[in-house]
Every structure is written in C-alpha cells, then in structure tokens.
Computed example of a mutant assay.
Amino acid sequence: MTGPVRIPLWGVHVTTPEIGARRSTVRVEVSVEGAPADVRVTVLDPHGDPVTTRRTAAGATGRAVLDLPVRSAALWFPDSPHLCTARAEVLVGGRVVDTVKITGGCDQHDHGPLGVVALDRSEERRVKLLKAAGFNALRTAHNPTTPALLDACDRLAVAFRDGREIGRTALRAAGARAALRLVPDVRSLTAGRDDLAHVLVEVVDAHGRLVPDATVQAGSEVGGAGELAGVANGNPYNVDSFRRPRHHTWHGRAPAVLRPGEQAGHVGLTVMAPGLRPATLTLAVESGKSE
C-alpha cells in the first residue's frame, strides 16, 4: 500500500530523445498525487549500479519532467540486449514516501486449449508461471479480469500493473533429443470438474536438458480417475486439434491438461513419440481439497 503522497498508476513515462555511443538523454515524466513533493529519478545500468540522478519539485501541477544525461551508455542490440532501469522516487521533507520500479508483463485472457473458460486453477497457474519467470506485475487484455486471478495476484504478491524489464538466465547447449519429460503444476487433484492439472510435455536430451528446436508428434494416453481436457503447443500456425490425443511439440514443449473425474483414485498420463523414451505420470485424485 502506498501513502497519501504517491505516484499514481501509469504515473511514470520514460523516453529517450537522444541516443548515442558517447552521450544519451533519458527523459522521465513523473506524476504525483496527494501534495506538493520532490521527485528524484535515478538511472541504473544493466548491473543495477546508478549512473546518473536528478531531483526536482513536482510543483503545483503535480508533474515533474527530468532530463538525465547518460555518458557512454551500453546500447541495446539483438546480440547484446543491455537494459537500463529508471527508478522514480517521491520525497517529502527529504524522506522517500513512494518508489516505482516494476517488472511487469502483458498476458492474454485465454488458457490455450481450454479456450476462454475461466477456471480458478488455470488462473492461479497463470500467475504462478509469471511469478516464477521473475515478473511482479501483470496486465491482461480483452476481457474483464476474474476474481480468481485477482485473488491469486494478492496471494503471490503480483501487482495488477504494467512495466518493463527482462530477467537473465544462463544457457547451455542441448544435445540430441532422447526422451520425453512430464512436468505437472500440481501433485494431486480434487475430484470434480473444477480442478485441473497442467502438464508440460518436454523433449529433452540425454542429460535432461530441454531441446528447444524439437518438433515431434506426441501421443497421449490417459487412464484412471480422469480425462484429457485438452492439448496445445503455442504454435499459431499449427492446426492440431485441441481435443485429440496426438499433437506436435513446438520449441520442444507442448502442454497437456488433465481433468479429474467425480470419483477419488489416481489418474495416469503416458506420452510417447517415435524414437524417444516415453514418459509416465500418475496424480492422486482426492475427495477432499487438494493442496
């Protein structure tokens, strides 16, 4: 929760009117609500170290415009995507009362092969995936947001806002495709139509590393106390049916969604592809509430 003197939603606008190898200029416009206050903006380099800072009064209009010079900035290129961050702070009496630095993402309103149906488990999974990827803010599109999504954002500390920043991860080259791997988002299910298990089918090499260029046709078999609710792969040009058990991977992955039946027990999923070691998964279907 922010205080009475704060930066409102969408209250920071950043542009770069001048970009060069020796000198660049970052223009930051900040709106302030509540009372007259000072605004301090700091530009951080890709390592998080400050490179320049400016401070000015927001004035009676509640708006401050700051031009910050940056010398010898590490510019963004496809093979070297350097990113700087602008941090805006509101100060009253020399004390910081609000800060804006958001890592956000924009997400569509549907759930792949399930379409636009809004199930609580799918909404929670969407927020968990964003959180695991390093995001702490979310903006949706097209349709009104469901209460389940907002509740998940509250529980997982994801703000319903927007921002810009990209995380970094270490990459290792994958070997030849060798096997399939199943990664579920839950370990148990609750009997009934409203619970779901989202299982990520992955093509991996002999060391268990994802093979990102693998496109294979996988077949799914489901048995026990559940059914296959849908399959997909994210490829906009693929015409595989969402309902049939055979589908292709894209970038080495394809999701399969399991729905439990009305009775407790176990639901099993086996996925096979030519030339690859198959993968099998078994999930408990409980009559009580799942963990």
Score class of each variant (00 low, 15 high):
residue 135 F to H: 07
residue 124 E to T: 04
residue 140 T to S: 09
residue 129 L to K: 01
residue 146 T to H: 02
residue 124 E to R: 12
residue 168 R to M: 10
residue 170 A to R: 07
residue 137 A to T: 03
residue 123 E to Q: 10
residue 133 A to Q: 05
residue 151 D to R: 15
residue 135 F to P: 01
residue 153 C to M: 01
residue 128 K to M: 03
residue 126 R to W: 07
residue 143 N to D: 11
residue 166 I to A: 15
residue 145 T to L: 15
residue 169 T to W: 12
residue 126 R to K: 13
residue 154 D to G: 09
residue 148 A to H: 07
residue 151 D to M: 12
residue 175 G to Q: 07
residue 136 N to E: 15
residue 147 P to A: 10
residue 144 P to N: 03
residue 167 G to C: 00
residue 134 G to A: 05
residue 174 A to E: 00
residue 142 H to T: 08
residue 173 A to Y: 06
residue 139 R to V: 02
residue 139 R to K: 12
residue 170 A to T: 07
residue 162 D to M: 14
residue 163 G to C: 04
residue 164 R to K: 09
residue 154 D to W: 15
residue 145 T to V: 14
residue 154 D to Y: 14
residue 124 E to V: 11
residue 174 A to P: 05
residue 156 L to E: 08
residue 134 G to C: 08
residue 133 A to L: 01
residue 148 A to P: 10
residue 164 R to H: 13
residue 125 R to Q: 11
residue 167 G to V: 01
residue 158 V to F: 07
residue 157 A to T: 01
residue 134 G to Q: 04
residue 161 R to E: 15
residue 132 A to Q: 15
residue 139 R to S: 09
residue 169 T to I: 11
residue 159 A to M: 15
residue 164 R to A: 15
residue 148 A to C: 05
residue 127 V to M: 04
residue 168 R to P: 01
residue 166 I to H: 09
residue 158 V to Y: 05
residue 173 A to E: 14
residue 174 A to I: 00
residue 135 F to W: 00
residue 158 V to A: 08
residue 161 R to H: 14
residue 146 T to A: 12
residue 122 S to Y: 07
residue 144 P to K: 09
residue 174 A to G: 07
residue 144 P to E: 00
residue 123 E to S: 12
residue 155 R to C: 02
residue 142 H to M: 09
residue 173 A to L: 14
residue 138 L to W: 00
residue 158 V to D: 04
residue 153 C to T: 02
residue 173 A to K: 05
residue 138 L to Y: 06
residue 139 R to C: 13
residue 154 D to H: 14
residue 166 I to N: 05
residue 163 G to S: 01
residue 162 D to T: 13
residue 169 T to K: 05
residue 149 L to C: 03
residue 172 R to L: 15
residue 175 G to W: 05
residue 173 A to C: 12
residue 123 E to R: 10
residue 140 T to R: 11
residue 125 R to W: 10
residue 122 S to K: 00
residue 145 T to N: 13
residue 141 A to H: 12
residue 130 L to N: 05
residue 129 L to E: 10
residue 162 D to Y: 13
residue 150 L to M: 12
residue 150 L to I: 11
residue 144 P to G: 06
